[in-house]
Amino acid sequence: MAFRLSNNLIGVLNFVTFLLSVPILGAGIWLGHRADGTECERYLSAPVIALGAFLLAVSLAGLVGACCRVTWLLWAYLLAMFVLILVLFCFTVFAFVVTNRGAGEAVSGRGYKEYRLGDYSNWLQKRVENTRNWDRIRSCLQDSKVCKSLQDKNETVAQFMSSSLSPIESGCCKPPTSCGYTYVGGTDWTPVTTNSTDPDCKTWSNDASALCYNCQSCKAGVVATFQRNWKRVAVVCIVFLVFIIIVYSVGCCAFRNNRRDNAYRGGWKGGYA
């Protein structure tokens, strides 16, 4: 009996997924074994490898199950897809819940915003307040030299005050405006006596390896970046979720075809036994 459309479609989709999984898996292995790799890259290698391995295994199961009419492999494929749909749905809902609070505060006479950790969800606050987590994040920030662009520009006071800084640059590469420090250039500031109760004023350092990486404002800048990126990922997840549901529906049709063909063959053979 000729292959049905659903089997062919599942086969093609999983062949494409298989081709995509190979470079993803390779990239994860490469990140983890780079001799000059940063701590951030090594930390990212584990989830990338896991994603690549998962896609490789699922695509092979779907490809063989649909094209070779192996019913139990197609069943395993559908089970994995169902779990993936649940995970994506839960993650999307969770991402919108934890990112529904918090925004940068405009500063008078400044082109950039400043960020306070207390404005964001408790879950995100706890993640960056955890010492182990923050040590890893701070190491990533230092390795990636997020403040280097400000150091290289070395703008005038007027240029710096009107510049548009990213949340991380605003929180980690300069002291809070409330400290009243005098801008010298780049990431160099002259401390002054201040009545500000902001603990970040004492934490700030002109040392390029320290700056405000241990400041609450830096943690808030990281959380603001996480929040923005998570919202984008959540939107992508919604689109991907719709696509996965469609593929899952086609896979169910292919599974039904396999069972029907197996029953037909069994009955045909049985009639000539």
Rank of each mutant, 00 (worst) to 15 (best):
G171N: 06
S163L: 02
A103H: 11
V235E: 03
L150D: 10
Q227N: 15
L117I: 08
P199S: 05
T131W: 02
T203R: 12
R138H: 05
E155T: 14
T190D: 05
D135G: 13
K219G: 02
N133K: 08
K113V: 09
Y183M: 09
K231V: 07
T131Q: 08
Q142G: 05
S209I: 00
V223R: 11
W123V: 11
W123Y: 11
N195F: 01
S166N: 07
V192Q: 01
Y213T: 07
C215A: 10
G111N: 14
T131L: 04
K174S: 13
T203G: 11
T197C: 00
Q159L: 11
Y120C: 05
S149C: 07
Y181P: 10
A158V: 03
T187I: 05
A106L: 12
R116K: 14
P176M: 08
V223I: 15
N195E: 06
S163Y: 03
T187S: 10
G221M: 03
K126T: 10
Q159C: 04
C173R: 14
G186Q: 01
L124R: 06
N206T: 10
T131I: 09
A224I: 06
G111E: 04
N206Y: 10
Q125W: 08
Y213L: 12
K148C: 02
S217M: 12
N122S: 08
C218T: 04
D200W: 04
N122P: 14
R136P: 05
N206H: 10
G111P: 07
D188Q: 12
D200P: 07
K126D: 13
A234L: 01
C173S: 10
A158T: 12
W134L: 11
R232A: 14
P199Y: 00
S209M: 02
E129K: 09
K153E: 08
K113G: 04
N195I: 07
N130G: 09
E169N: 15
E114Q: 08
A210R: 12
G111W: 13
T131R: 11
K202H: 07
F226E: 02
Y183H: 11
V233S: 06
Y181K: 10
F226H: 07
V146M: 14
N133Q: 12
W230T: 13
P175I: 03
S178T: 06
G180R: 07
G180I: 03
Y112L: 00
G186I: 11
T194W: 00
K145G: 01
K174Y: 02
R116M: 09
N214W: 03
N133D: 06
L150T: 09
V107Q: 13
R110M: 13
W189M: 10
D188A: 13
S205T: 04
K145C: 00
N154F: 15
V184G: 05
N133A: 06
L150V: 12
A220L: 02
T156L: 10
N133W: 00
T193C: 02
P191F: 02
W189Y: 10
R138K: 14
E155P: 15
S121W: 01
W134R: 12
S196P: 11
T131A: 07
L117Q: 00
C173M: 04
K153C: 02
Y120L: 06
T190I: 07
E155F: 04
V236I: 08
C140Y: 00
